[in-house]
Design a protein around this nucleic acid. Structure first.
Lengths: 128, 128
DNA sequence: TTCTTATTTCAAATTTTTTTGAAACAATTC
DNA sequence: GAATTGTTTCAAAAAAATTTGAAATAAGAA
């Protein structure tokens, strides 16, 4: 009732009004074309995946306070060395943090990308 | 050479300078206290996890163009119904999108949270 | 050189996430 | 009511991420 079924380009029925607004953006083809390019989607996925884990978010937050060596991060998080190393490697690969050797130690810090991400996105959640 | 080893509060050695700057933020205890509260970390994790998948990022991008019913999202993404449904449910649980029944169809749109997230974070990656 | 400490790497075990296909459900039309 | 279409739910299978513990590496100190 009140809903018109219309066969369209991809041969599916649509709710009334849907086809017209779809046409406004070029239909299904148009929608596909409007999506960001795959490499951008990929890049965004890598960052989101890097922070899809509480321990890794904590690491990012810690490093936003100051650069820290692995042993201190370990003491705060209370997890095993290899486990921490695994998480650090994922953050490092994502480009959000970087590590610099200082003698026997490796000191990790936020990269510019990491700082930007923290500034832009994170606040929108915390400031609620 | 040039690196002093100092036994400290948690009984680990540290690179020179590390202890002083650590003291500046209250040591390991202080660092722990400076981390966001667990519920915030959790919330951030949920959002990041929701967008840790390319298909889900694409869905978010599509919905930023206009609200869409499942069958159209399906046509753009070219995946099975149940697979799409699974991804939609994760986005829905994260609060980034919401669905409204219109007759037989369900139309999904970005929530305010979804719009904010897209505005704040995402651009910092795409505008490069 | 040998020893110690900090950190990473590796492979196996475990856990979590994702995919698949069938079945269920809900709104509509016949 | 029966049949149809759009969507979700469910459980099993498959794939991917994470944890674990042991071994490797690297930098210094003795």
């Amino acid at each position: 009732m009140g809903i018109k079924k219309i066969k369209n380009e991809i041969n599916i029925f649509l709710p009334e009004g849907a086809e017209e607004s779809l046409c406004g953006c070029g239909g299904v083809k148009g929608l596909k074309a409007l999506l960001p390019k795959d490499s951008d989607i990929e890049a965004l996925g890598v960052i989101h995946h890097a922070l899809a884990d509480k321990k890794r978010i904590k690491i990012l937050c810690m490093l936003s306070i100051q650069p820290l060596c692995v042993c201190i991060i370990r003491a705060v998080l209370e997890i095993s060395d290899s486990r921490l190393s695994y998480h650090l490697s994922i953050l490092k690969k994502s480009g959000l943090i970087s590590g610099e050797q200082k003698g026997t130690w490796i000191t990790y810090s936020l990269t510019d990308k990491g700082k930007e991400w923290l500034d832009s996105g994170i606040n929108s959640v915390f400031v609620k």
